[in-house]
Design a protein around this nucleic acid. Structure first.
Lengths: 216, 216
DNA sequence: AAAAAAATCTACTCTTCGGTAGATTGCTTA
DNA sequence: TAAGCAATCTACCGAAGAGTAGATTTTTTT
């Protein structure tokens, strides 16, 4: 029994848009495979031959979709940085006390650092990049760092955050929430969201004994 | 005018111990130069030719003192890990509440992570190492991690630390205090000790608003 | 003084890997 | 149907860098 619908769906004659989108999908698949390999070992220790092999293709095919090895990395970190940037902009446009907005941002920040592309941002050190890539990378990271400091400062101003040294606080929070990029494996009992929440709660409350709030 | 004392001091005829110690000094100089280069870029991106050049020697001379490139790295991380191990043992043998002992340990932990060899421990990921080196590396790191968790658990038990999830707390504290290995440069206004203290204080108190302790 | 050992160098080898040339296959378009 | 273009491959080039061979120089020992 013929199935015309099905044949029409997967006709071998693609339209121009379909071809463009297929190309885009392949490009994305290359980036996804590359970022996983970079995260599993390191950018330097990963060869494009290895990345190609995991996709069942050859190295020149990667060059058909991306200019060179550095560009592969730059595209990966750019994806991660754009996620972080979006989170930062969202946090800045929200309502609520400084602490509430910082909390939301930090949770999202931590989650992104457990994503393939987010992990890559953390694990990439800018000395790896060419002058041009380094400029861009630092610029975007700086923007995210400034957003975090602004949120902290606003919380201090409105009293929702203790009067901390903003610079030290930003390093401490970012450091704690960057670290999952090094150990989180995607297995384990807790989801990234649960880990993020637990860590942020701890950073807000501290590990010191809770002050006994006397019932009135 | 002859200076017999000075000639005796720096006689060209060394004793056996002097020769052994000179060899040891040269070996140490190689490790110090290597760890600085590894920290500035990365192990993979640093060639032994570069390391040799900073010492004004040639690559084969490095091989005269150390077996191969991996052994150079292993020696560097071992030095760092031994410092951490010493700090962990000290913390466990001290007196005081769990929180007090944890604080002292964390400050020392953070300081070591701003030292050349400590930074190298943090920046080295075990996938770089051979099976043998990896086993050793993981073993020592695990010991330090267990010590931190034990201190946290003891603090929870004696009430000096809030009833936190020990695993999450260990990841959060370690992550925050590992991060200086990535950004601390040795310049900057604050000393490693000051940075360590400020970060630990923040982690203990949290960034949340301090509960107003009502005067009685 | 001769022999042995230690320290160091120059000049290699061999492998890995980024990147390219150019052929092949097959779809698209005029 | 011919020309053009997209996707992919095999086979290579050249640079970098880990590690070694073996010579040379210096120091130590006998």
């Amino acid at each position: 029994m013929p199935e015309p619908q099905s044949i029409a769906d997967r006709s071998p004659f693609r339209s121009a848009e379909e071809r463009a989108s297929e190309r885009e999908q392949k490009r994305e698949a290359v980036l996804r495979a590359a970022v996983r390999a970079f995260n599993a070992k390191s950018f330097e220790a990963t060869s494009l031959d290895e990345v190609a092999a995991t996709l069942g293709i050859s190295k020149p095919t990667i060059y058909h979709y991306l200019g060179n090895k550095e560009q592969v990395l730059v595209e990966c970190v750019t994806r991660g940085l754009e996620m972080l940037q979006a989170a930062a902009r969202e946090a800045q446009s929200e309502s609520g006390s400084g602490l509430e907005r910082l909390r939301r941002f930090l949770r999202r920040y931590a989650e992104i650092n457990m994503d393939d592309f987010g992990r890559c941002v953390i694990r990439t050190n800018d000395e790896t990049l060419s002058a041009e890539g380094r400029r861009r990378f630092r610029g975007l990271k700086g923007e995210i760092d400034r957003a975090m400091r602004t949120l902290i400062a606003e919380g201090v101003d409105d009293g929702s955050i203790a009067p901390v040294d903003v610079r030290i606080a930003a390093f401490t929070l970012a450091g704690a929430l960057n670290w999952p990029a090094r150990w989180h494996q995607g297995d384990g009992a807790m989801s990234p969201g649960e880990i993020a929440s637990a860590m942020v709660d701890l950073l807000v409350s501290g590990i010191g004994p809770r002050v006994q709030t006397r019932p009135d």
